[in-house]
Write a protein that binds this DNA or RNA. Sequence first.
RNA 1: GCUCGGGUGGCGGAACUGGUAUACGCACAGGACUUAAAAUCCUGGGCCCGUAAGGGAUUGAGGGUUCAAUUCCCUCCCCGAGCACCA
Length: 783
Amino acid sequence: MKKYNPQQIEKKWQEYWKTNKTFAASDSSDKPKKFVLMEFPYPSGDGLHMGHVRGYTAGDVVSRYYRMQGQEVMYPIGWDAFGLPAENYAIKHGKDPKDTTTTNIANIKKQFQSIGYSFDWDREINTTDPEYYKWTQWLFLKFYEAGLAYEATGLINWCPKDKTGLSNEEVINGACERCGTKVEKKELRQWYLKITEYADKLLEGLKHLPEWPEAVKLQQENWIGKKEGSEIEFYLDFKKNPAGNDRRGPDGEKAKLTVFTTRPDTIFGATFLVLAPEHLWVTLATDADHDVLENKEEVKAYVDAAKAKDEMDRTDATKEKTGVELKGVKAINPATNEEIPIWVADYVLGGYGTGAIMAVPGHDERDHEFAEKFNLSIIELTEFADGNKFGTPKTTYRLRDWVFSRQRYWGEPIPLVHCEKDGVVAVPEDQLPVVLPEVKDYEPTGTGESPLAVVDEWVNTTCPKCGGAAKRETNTMPQWAGSSWYYLRYADPHNAQAFADQEKLKHWLPVDLYFGGMEHTTLHLLYSRFWNIFLHDQGLVPVSEPYTKRIPHGIILAADGSKMSKSKGNVVNPDSIVKEFGADVLRMYELFLGPHEASVSWSDKGIIGVARFLDRVWFWVSNAKATDEDSDEVLRALHTTIKKVTEDLENYKFNTVVSSLMSLHNEIKDQSCSKASMLVFAQMLYPIAPHIAEEIAELLGSEGSLQFSTWPTADESLLGAETMKVVVQVNGKVKDTLVLPLGTSEEEIKTQAMQSERVQATLTGKEPQRVIYVEGKLLNIVI
RNA sequence: GCUCGGGUGGCGGAACUGGUAUACGCACAGGACUUAAAAUCCUGGGCCCGUAAGGGAUUGAGGGUUCAAUUCCCUCCCCGAGCACCA
């Protein structure tokens, strides 16, 4: 008898799977397709962490399971290798990001293979491969041609550490999503994708995703933040303007202000207006060309101070309100015809609604607080206006357009050129990809320009339209570009003529199961839905929603419940676990830790339980005194477990799959068990611990890979017992348990229950008032 | 503040549609094997009282519905996630 030697067994089967291409997914199979996906990793220098292992293991388990259920499963993998982390890593080590990326990929690939994932390696993709990013650029041009990619100068989020612009989604609590640095505002020329134009479609699509977790849908919904309301115009009245009440504003035309409100019915209570410090009217009224305000300098000072504050301070609801009245101008409440003052205050945000509100201090807490502080009149309404009669219905969104350019080196060049004569011109398809040039210095410049701007021979080009001199766009795309469509490429990863063949897309899409982290809900998951819906509108992708089912996983924490991090030195490396216990133990233990969606703490102690279990299973099979027949208990336990494990796998309850297998083994290991039943045990073990399962099957004399065996079905006729266990309670407390032949009558059960010593002891002669009998389960005597 | 999750032994966690709470695993205790230790195997309790048999309590706290509540309803507390001066 050989001792269980995971290192040896695992290597053997990994070689076997590789040689036999066991997990290659066929594009032309008759079997029903299943597209299983886990978010692809970016190849960081630290390699895989436990969180990765959790997600990829879950995907691997269901992939192996569905293959045994007769489905054609595609479980692909690739590398999301552009972006800041890869670039920062390269800079830190003084190397070319291309080289470090290659090295890191090789390392992680080795890790993946050592854990035995059933990826279809023939479909491996890499976002930094020009053959891949050619199509990322091509798809970007589709947005450009549709008018959904535009260039604009504006205040954007700027990370001073990474020295690049960030999208709104990348700012978490006022800090950079990557490095945690406090984000600043900076005025910069940027490329944007008009995701706001797809706000309604993104919302509508959520309604057709019944298999997504509510929490994820809700988060996206909140992020989009759709609100119905009205825009109402307020005419202005100037005191200082020599033109008197000619209703001309500082811009010469707009002698009115438009506010956004969700409560037009409270307009009779609107006693003042408030403008955001960024409001265009305020900017104009305080500039050198205009002289309508009596306190221009005071207002200007307030506005400048507000702009200097960072986002966090601005939007802190607990701080005291500040503001300045715009003296010399009044607004007319269109409902009451009364003159009301206009204030500028930073509790009104420039980027939401119209940047101006009508303040109704009688019916809004914030307006109330403001009115109290500055002694403005407050009207408590008893009657409300007909909300339909005011203003124009208007919908606003919290969602902002997606800042799509980065001032960094390691990304896809944006395939556009700037021509003096023709302006912005798209690079024609036959000139794609625009290859990222070699540079001497990858360091971000911090000036708002990418390091590409200094590569003259690359920047200077000819205009595809007029043939004259032109300059290339030097900004690169954000990390999210390549990952916004990678799942499409898996359907046809080597296509040189198109991003993917339409027939293959029709065959594989949508992704049936998408595993990934909760942290991508309003980043990657929202972005890729946007791309997919747009591409569907363009007739380029057959389905509107890319992911049928989303399965998020919780984080793996350190033993003390804190996050694993290098700085704390509490990171557990998957490699060391594989080395010490084997891949099967690592896989099984990660699943056993707790429910897939919950955050769980890693425990070095607990892993021994799983290691012992596989050891015992090995001992059991290799010492096999397999009998010709199974005992009834073995058959019953086996089929009960088949039923339970199948149900649990269908519901991604991996932790209870593991415990069910442990229970089953405990029950049958000392009983008469046939080889056939042992093989069924190995089959059930296979998705979770495939190496040992394959080896056991071989030991039992089966040939080939278990992957091609058929998943066992529970025989319902074997599930029932010949006896039933009836719990006897008195007043709801358990007193006894009766084991009776099936079909014992209620009367007989009652009689027997009343004879029980412990029941008698509790009754102490009292007569039962009521007896409740639950068929075959329980008898409750009430006294 | 709002929205969504969650709170079960010393620890991770399990529990169908309301029907034996604590499966499975870790840790712990006792035993077997061993010169010994480790590993392994067997057994056990889990909070309180009791030598024991046994009894009682118990699913964040309090109340309710029910023959019966971890499960349903109400009030509150705590933890996690998301949103937030969003008009």
